[in-house]
Each structure stands twice: as C-alpha cells, then as structure tokens.
Write a protein that binds this DNA or RNA. Structure first.
Lengths: 232, 232
DNA sequence: GCTCAAGATTGATTTTTATCAATGCAGCGA
DNA sequence: TCGCTGCATTGATAAAAATCAATCTTGAGC
C-alpha cells in the first residue's frame, strides 16, 4: 500500500457518488478536510481488527473485503466493497475496528480522518445525511445476507451473489472478478470444495464463463431462477 | 393492539435507555413530540412489510420479532427486540417497511411519528446521536448474525442465541421466553425439528430448564463452550 | 521452455441437517 | 371430563454440505 499524497476532491471523478456529493466546489474547498490519496495492490492490509479506528475509506477503484477471523481459524467475509463504497465508518462509534480490511485487487482509495469526518458531519447536514444513508445501506445489505445464509441453499446463495456482483458493473459484459474460491466460500458460508463444484456446474450449464479473473454471465435468467429457489 | 393515549415521557421508567436519554425534563417538554402509548397482546401485527413507514417504536415491555417472509413460504427472523429497543427507524430512509413487526408476548410500546422524529433529530444533536447509535448497534448485531449463520453449526448457534437472550435479563434467574420452536428455527436458519432435538439434548444435559414460557440457564459455561465451537 | 507453489477441481466418504411421518402433550372450550 | 387443536417431540430416511485425499491447472520466476 502506498500513500500518494493529498487528494484534490474538486476534480475527483467519483465525487458524485461520494459522501461529498451535493456540495459545490466552493463548499468543498471550505470544508478544510484533508483527504489522503492511496494506492493498493492485491492483498494489502488497510487495517486489522482490534486496531484503533482512525480512518474511513472511500474505494475509488478495485475491490476490498471486510473479514472477521474466528478463534477456530475460520474466516467470514462481512462485506465486499466496490468502487464508490465507503467503509471503516463504524469507527465513528467505536474506538477499534472490528474486522480486517484487505484489498482483493490493485486499486485506489481515499483516506478520511475519522475525527475530521465526525466534526464535518456535525456541521454539514448534507454530509451527515450521506453518511447516514451509507449506514442504512450497510444494514439493509447485512440483513439480506442473513436471509441468504439463513434460508437458502448453496446454489441459490452463489447465484444471488454472482448476480449482485454483476449489478455493480452494469455496463460491462466481462466483469472483474478477483475473488478466490476461498473468498467465495468465506462470503457464502460454504466450503471451498462445495463452491468449486457449484461453479463448475454453472459453467457446464454455460450459465457463465470465467477466465483469468474475469467473469461473464451468460444466462442471468437461469441464475435468477436458481437464486430464488428455496430448500425444498 | 390497543392505543392507550399519549405518553408522558417525563415520567417514563424507560427514559434513561431511550433515545430521549440525556435530555432533562424541561427539554423533553419543549420538544413538542407526541408519543403514543400502545398495548399489545401476543401475535399482534405492528406493521407489515410493504406498508408505508409512518412510525418508529420503542418497546417498553414484552418482545417483538422483525420477520421477512420469502416467496417460498419460509420465514426468517431478522431481529428480536426486547425492552428498551427501538425499531422501525429504517423508515427514516425508506418509504416502506421491509419486514413485518409482530409481538411475541403481551407488552407495551411507544409509537413515534417518523416525520417528527426526523425533524427532531435534525435539531437535537443528542437525539440524533442516540438514533445513530441504534443504527450502529443494529449493524453490529446483524453482522454478528452473519458470522453465526455463515460459520457455526446448529448447536453453536442455539447456544450463542440462548446466552444472548439471557444477557437481556441480567438480574433474572428464570427468563421470559415466549419463542416457539418455529421462531427459534426462523431465527437460527434451521428446521423446527432440528431445534427441538438440540433443545432436548441441552435439557438432557441439564444445561437448561424450560417451563411454561420460562427458561432457566443452568450451565452457562457449558453453553459458552458449545457456542464458540466451530464445525470440525 | 521448465519447475514450483498456490489455487482449483474431482472423487469418495462422513457428518450435518432437512424432510417425512407418527406420536405425545398441554391448554381450552363445550 | 372429553376431545380438540396447536405445538413439541421422536424416529427413520433422504438430501445437503463438509471433510479428506488425490490430482490437475495455472501463473510466476528462472
């Protein structure tokens, strides 16, 4: 991971989707918020569980996983972040991070000091609302995961997941897919082998294709159907 | 469900744990917030998924489940609320409720108009902070459920759940336990039969006792051990 | 190109969990 | 009290998923 320097938010491509959306350039300049610009490679550790929470991050490019490691040695992926996502903001309410944040692919991030963010959100209703919206989205997503894990079988979970992943790249036929089977297993609550078998089956059915970290979904309709299927 | 009338928050036993904690009686009076006082029986429907979200609720007595019903007919319990808990506040960011809220036992609630709550939270930093704290807690809990469902086996999930339930009644030896096996199954992502077998086993081990909606935990230490156990 | 290591796949087997089918039991109204 | 009715329990069996044990790829470094 590499610190590049300060970010110039007024020129950021991503601003419209960030928590600073809705502020005009003048407002943005008067915030007095320093935003660090970071580059990461695959498997860089942004922070570890238990470390003091000092920063939140906006992911501009790449993908990041938030991971919980259990005493048993198992790992569970709690969230997967894409371009535009904010993470680490639990730090506004807790002194320590409660999971690891690890990049899955080379990418770019903005690092925001949590103290400054806190002050800003108190003064700027627009920013406050934006953060609250992220909180809301994170809760909704997490509850959807509870539904998936609690009520659906392996193939349905995987199908749902692949379709959701694809939604994050609406304009692309071939999607970046930097997840290992281990990552998929840790996200879906399954064993690596089981994930591998189901992926193989999906490929045999020609519902998808995979090549060098790229994924193509060929039969979204079939996956949709599988995704809705209950255990029966 | 029965509307009793307006609540006098200044005299509420629960105020210290509510979102109005930290306000002195004078501040409380000047808020101009009308709080409806409700009684419920077991199995009353407070709201349904898809209904316009108009109120949030504070549960003063009893227990409430937030349920998602799937197209397949399965149900998943997303949250279980106890005395002191606030729910329905997703309505601050969405126009419709996204789950059913159903009481498990007779109880008492306060009903807060979401519009008023919104206005209040904009003006009163203390209330805003309190709501944000609930949001944070809900996310943390939901993520813990993802860990349970994604990484643990049936006995571990049940043991964890029982211990958490007990934590909500720290001073009681014998706990109110208004859940059916169906409720437990819907919360833990298991079948009714499986839950029943594990409960029977825990009772055989004399780790707990159950009688007419009351639960006694006799061997928390053993349950703790089971709760941490990975699938192996 | 060749070698190695990490990840992915496949098969055989076991464990966990769901499903199906009775049966038991407690509370309640007639 | 009887006889429902709705849970809860128990057993037998089937399905789903994990585990164990080999391979098989593939990509990186030489």
């Amino acid at each position: 991971m590499k610190t590049i320097g300060l970010s110039d938010c007024t020129r950021c491509q991503m601003r419209g989707e960030s928590i600073f959306a809705g502020l005009d350039p003048v407002e943005l300049c008067t915030l007095g918020m320093e935003v660090q610009d970071l580059d990461c490679r695959a498997n860089d550790v942004l922070y570890r569980s238990g470390e003091p929470a000092r920063y939140a991050y906006t992911l501009r490019e790449g993908a990041v996983k938030l991971v919980k490691n259990l005493a048993s040695g198992q790992e569970v992926i709690l969230r997967l972040l894409h371009h535009g996502d904010l993470f680490g903001f639990e730090g506004l309410h807790e002194t320590q991070h409660r999971h690891d944040a690890i990049s899955l692919a080379p990418g770019k991030l903005c690092r925001l000091d949590l103290g400054e963010l806190q002050r800003l959100s108190e003064r700027q209703p627009k920013i406050r609302a934006a953060i609250l919206q992220r909180w809301h989205d994170a809760l909704r997503d997490s509850e959807e995961r509870v539904v998936e894990l609690g009520a659906k079988r392996a193939e349905a979970r995987l199908a749902t997941f692949l379709l959701q992943w694809a939604q994050r790249y609406p304009h692309l036929r071939s999607l970046p897919f930097p997840l290992t089977r281990q990552d998929l297993a840790a996200f879906l609550g399954l064993s690596v082998e089981h994930v591998s078998r189901i992926m193989a089956e999906f490929k045999r059915q020609e519902w998808l294709r995979e090549h060098r970290g790229q994924l193509e979904i060929l039969a979204a309709a079939h996956l949709q159907e599988i995704a809705g299927k209950k255990p029966e």
